[in-house]
């Protein structure tokens, strides 16, 4: 390759490296914010759990709500795939799509009907491409999901469950472990298990005694009615947590992907620089030889 061509290639690889470095930095900054938001949800989720326990104690038991009912026949299964609006994040999106379609195929093989739902443009378009068009897609917020987004998704899925359109709802998302690692998690959203709600350990491990459980507590309305609203909140909170973890995982995956892209670009630049030096030396040698040959011819 001629010296000029190599020079051009080095310049373009350097440009790419600048872009990937910038994307890495942006992802790292957003990742810190996403981590803060996961932490901010914990006190709320813990308090909802404590109130549910208190109301359940007062009511004697958790009332038989429609979302708690286990159905004998789980004929139709809904799968919610949590992906991102954007790519450039390594295997982030593809591993969810792969796990989701595999799960769906297993259910289909068992003779059940599978209904797909997806968040993120990547999930919606991949599923559509694979002839598994989602029943409904939720897009445009995956870089910064709000609780309202989680509520919207929860409302759609809960309504589908209660109105009998599906008998079971599962969610697949990238759980956040660290900036460098995510894992595909598969959880059942509906039906809710009573044990999950009253889980004594409480995911947060807060064992604070509710202000004098013996004291006379006023309930407005009756504890049963409060529970009828508290329990569905678990679905919203679970989805919100999954969205937040998925966002953090996406940013972590993008940061890692962009870092290796930058490193890769660095290696290519080193190789090309070597090649360019070689080409330059070859040209110089060539010229010297020509000069010497010319001098000899004259001599």
């Amino acid at each position: 390759m001629a010296q000029r061509d190599v020079k051009n290639r080095i310049a373009s690889v350097k440009n790419i490296q600048k872009i990937t470095r910038a994307m890495e930095m942006v992802a790292a900054a957003r990742l810190r914010r996403a981590e803060t938001r996961i932490a901010a949800l914990r006190p709320y989720a813990g308090a909802i759990r404590r109130m549910t326990r208190q109301a359940a104690e007062a009511a004697g038991d958790v009332p038989a709500l429609p979302i708690l009912a286990d159905r004998d026949q789980e004929q139709r299964v809904a799968l919610l795939l949590v992906t991102a609006d954007r790519g450039l994040a390594g295997a982030f999106n593809s591993q969810i799509i792969r796990a989701g379609t595999r799960t769906g195929d297993e259910y289909t093989a068992e003779g059940r009907q599978v209904v797909y739902y997806a968040t993120g443009r990547r999930g919606v378009s991949s599923l559509t491409f694979r002839n598994r068009t989602p029943e409904q897609g939720f897009t445009g917020f995956t870089e910064r999901p709000s609780y309202a987004n989680a509520r919207e998704i929860a409302n759609v899925l809960t309504a589908a469950y209660i109105d009998g359109k599906v008998d079971r709802v599962e969610i697949l998302y990238n759980g956040y472990i660290s900036p460098m690692s995510q894992e595909v998690r598969r959880e059942t959203l509906l039906p809710l298990q009573k044990a999950t709600i009253l889980d004594e350990q409480g995911a947060e491990g807060e064992q604070e005694e509710v202000g004098g459980a013996q004291a006379l507590v006023d309930y407005e309305p009756e504890p049963e009615e409060i529970l009828a609203r508290l329990v569905p909140d678990y679905v919203e909170i679970s989805i919100f947590r999954a969205l937040l973890e998925s966002t953090a995982s996406e940013l972590g995956a993008r940061m890692t992907a962009m870092r290796s892209a930058s490193d890769n670009a660095g290696e290519i630049i080193d190789d090309l620089t070597l090649e360019m030096n070689r080409a330059r030396q070859a040209e110089i040698t060539q010229e010297i030889m020509e000069v010497v040959a010319g001098a000899e011819a004259l001599g």
């Binding site: 109301a55 007062a58 004098g212 006379l216 006023d218 309930y219 407005e220």
Partner: peptide, 19 residues
């Protein structure tokens, strides 16, 4: 506002759980 209507809470209120 609770589901039952407007509510005002001052110090030393009786223990309460309201929607």
């Amino acid at each position: 506002k609770t589901v039952g209507g407007s509510i005002g809470i001052l110090a030393h209120h009786q223990p309460l759980l309201a929607m």
